[in-house]
Design a protein around this nucleic acid. Structure first.
Lengths: 194, 194
DNA sequence: CAGGTCATGTAATAAGTTACATGATTAA
DNA sequence: TTAATCATGTAACTTATTACATGACCTG
């Protein structure tokens, strides 16, 4: 159950469930998502288990918040997660499963599929590049000399960009292969007048 | 619910639940996993919904199997899935979330983490490369002239290899950055005798 | 006859999503 | 005053994992 550990990680600063949801969107959106309906019960459970404490606090805007903070046990739990080595589960990439069965639709739709996929990942990459640009605008010699959490945040950002680039390039390659195969096919069906 | 659609895709040839589990391991393992405990009920439900038919059949080895095959409705359902465009959900890469919080452990463990991660993905890549090698051993001019389902199977294989390579290279980069940052840190703590 | 693989299932639990319900505060 | 945002939660449902139960058949 990684959600618990991720919440502990995000709680380096005390925060409410609502704050944490925003942190997910801002910091982890391209590799983890969580709904409020999942976050609130998780926080409650973690408090019950002694990993967190909470107290209510007036907000600058809107109603009172319930602010959570890690206990010493919460700290330990986070450390253990990180010290237990990387958690690599098998991915669930349904779009890639779709590719595996794409031979059951006509070529025109195969091409559409890859074009849509490429556009989708170009959007994803653009989002990350915007973040990266903001970052280096604020701090000119950015990739160097980053310390503490910023270093790791930058690493995850960088992997995101290169991973999306890998997929975008692969889409181009697939499109070329399909066009090539399609041309050969058309050639044998309808040989030129010669 | 992609599992249903993936099962439909795998059922290009009639197969039993047990056969399908093996197909998952052999064909989709690096981007989708499914347990028998998930497959059997899914097949039952799909038959109830008219997407599949089944009949019992003696096996060459072991007890009788229940062989499933797609109905016309099942075919249509698969086509619709593919024609509805790529299904891109946000990934859940807990190891990447771990990286995001790695500033809370000592440098030595940060290094260990990336070394383990790199080794893990090197294993993954090696698996795929074995498959790719078998493939081109059987068929010398393999990447060219592939048609039908083989073309798409080859595409997914290729993405797997390049994606793992991207991650492996990124690990090297991260290790370098950490060693560099650590050297600077050590330098300021313990300046050389000069 | 013991251990392995083939083969099919159920039960209990965990994790995640969608929909619903409530209410405060603030800016237009 | 009305829409947006802030804020917290519950209920129902779907999806996925782990553990358990059963039994046929085959090899040594």
């Amino acid at each position: 159950m990684s959600l618990q550990h991720i919440l502990l990680g995000l709680l380096a600063q005390p925060a409410s469930g609502y704050d944490l949801k925003q942190a997910f969107q801002q910091r982890l959106s391209h590799y983890w998502a969580a709904e409020l309906a999942q976050i609130y019960p998780a926080l409650k459970r973690m408090q019950r288990d002694g990993l967190l404490t909470s107290r209510q606090q007036a907000s600058d805007k809107g109603p009172r918040k319930r602010i959570y903070r890690r206990t010493a046990a919460g700290q330990r739990c986070l450390q253990q997660w990180l010290q237990s080595g990387p958690e690599v589960h098998s991915d669930r990439l349904s779009w890639l499963a779709q590719v595996a069965f794409l031979d059951t639709v006509p070529v025109a739709e195969q091409l559409d599929f890859f074009r849509l996929l490429q556009a989708e990942f170009e959007r994803h990459r653009a989002q990350l590049q915007t973040i990266a640009a903001d970052w280096s605008a604020q701090d000119p010699d950015c990739p160097e000399h980053l310390g503490g959490n910023d270093l790791f945040a930058h690493m995850t950002l960088r992997l995101g960009v290169t991973k999306y680039t890998t997929i975008i390039d692969w889409c181009s390659e697939c499109l070329q292969r399909l066009e090539h195969a399609d041309a050969k096919q058309a050639g044998s069906d309808h040989p030129t007048a010669s």
